[in-house]
Amino acid sequence: MTGAREEILARIRRATADLPATAVAVPRAYLRHAPGVDPEDRTAVLDLFAERLGEYGAAVHRTDAAAVAPTLASALPAGRAVVPRGFPAQWLADWSGTALADEPLLTREQLDAADAVVTTCAAAIADSGTLVLDAGPGQGRRAATLLPDLHLCVVRADQVVSAMPEAIGLLDPRRPLTWISGPSATADIEMIRVQGVHGPRRLTVLLVEDSDVSDA
């Protein structure tokens, strides 16, 4: 298909021959932080994050490092939950369900049959109530956070930035990233929002507020 490649490139060069070779100047006057929030005011940033998640219909539990295990146990029904490698075991200490390790890799059917998946995340964005998973430790591969119907994500307060421009630089684009803003949803029928289609229909977030000090 070299023919197509060369021809398309040649067409582009002909089409843009009238344009200067220099780069177009790009203004960047937009905000670096969430509007109306001082990014240094951690309480305000976390409040915004919790509020925005709540608006999507996600359940938010604010807790501290010492109380993650009991909070998780109360937020996650007993059942079969996928637990990726690197997810701190002590957080599951009070939970009475069955942990499924994804090693060896669970089949799609096994993932589909699981009741839940628990993960950490790579970053979170308060302004849009977004969790970003990069398949790093504690986050699992992408299929594992997709097929179970409940996704519980533990977010450390120091992972929460106020807005997208702060997050983008923290993430590695060469990793597969999943940006999650609330549970799966659709508005394809008469523009009425229906929560829960193909992805997890329930999203639960544990926000660990003093995590800058201690990582569990």
Partner: peptide
């Protein structure tokens, strides 16, 4: 673009899911 798209398209701050990937990731996808 991610701050513009969902707001302008569907009136959401972000669409529920955005997937970004580069080529192939061994063991994932």
């Amino acid at each position: 673009f991610l701050q513009l798209l969902a707001r302008n398209a569907t009136g959401e701050r972000m669409s529920p899911y955005t997937t970004t990937f580069s080529g192939v990731t061994p063991g994932d996808g």
